[in-house]
């Protein structure tokens, strides 16, 4: 239990998807103009990460990794399908996003209207695929660990985009040199936020 809490806190603050690995930057910069839309996208990312990462974990563990297919037939014991992981992971992400979109549309039209436009965007958000690839590279051992990591990194991403959106709303009233306005100052602000997040480094529970 303790290592799960540790992993959770670590994936939110220390190994923040945005500030430590720059994942999901494109939508992070494009959709952070107002707090309201940023919150919507943040929630959508948490949701999709928590759904896709455990699915990808199970596929990785029981189909893709070296010798994983041994449960099917002992002669598959030395089969290694790792090279297929990119295409399988992205196919899972794209189809789950499609599925989630249809389910949300059917059962909660109001949520669909607020998330609707972001859901297709999320299929190509690097944070989602990145989560699955990190899960594979770091070799998380249990389903619990994979899910905790998904939840933590999703919350970390949402936290980052909401706080950037809040800063950008205030930035509108500042007198910034003309060539730096918009994109330029946003990059610098994200850099400064990154420095702030580095103070969490080395924290262990």
């Amino acid at each position: 239990m303790q290592d799960l809490v540790n992993l959770f806190v670590k994936s939110i603050f220390v190994e923040n998807m945005v500030f430590a690995y720059f994942l999901g930057m494109c939508s992070f910069l494009a959709v952070s103009k107002s707090v309201k839309t940023a919150t919507g996208l943040g929630i959508a990312v948490i949701f999709v990460l928590v759904v896709t990462l455990p699915v990808n974990y199970l596929i990785y563990k029981y189909v893709l990794t070296a010798g994983a297919l041994a449960w099917l037939d002992p002669s598959f014991a030395d089969l290694d399908l790792n090279f297929l992981s990119f295409i399988i992971f992205i196919a899972v992400v794209a189809s789950i996003v499609q599925l989630v979109e249809m389910i949300v549309e059917k059962f909660s039209p109001s949520l669909y209207n607020s998330l609707g436009i972001f859901l297709p965007l999320i299929a190509v958000n690097c944070a989602i695929l990145g989560g699955s690839l990190f899960m594979q590279e770091r070799g998380y051992e249990t389903l619990g660990q994979a899910t905790t990591y998904a939840l933590g990194s999703g919350i970390g991403w949402a936290l980052a985009i909401v706080s950037l959106a809040a800063i950008r709303e205030k930035l509108k009233y500042s007198n910034i040199p003309a060539p730096l306005r918009g994109l330029g100052i946003t990059f610098i602000v994200v850099g400064l936020m990154g420095i702030a997040f580095m103070s969490f480094m080395g924290i262990k529970l």
Binding site: F22, L180, R181, G182, F187, I188, G191, G194, M198
Partner: peptide
């Protein structure tokens, strides 16, 4: 460190936009 990359991109954008006025955002 990671933040340096972001700040450098910000500076590159600043330099590029100082030379090409049509890219400046309102």
């Amino acid at each position: 460190l990671p933040p340096a990359a972001l700040i450098l991109v910000g500076l590159i954008i600043w330099i590029q936009r100082s030379f090409t006025k049509e890219l400046i955002e309102k």
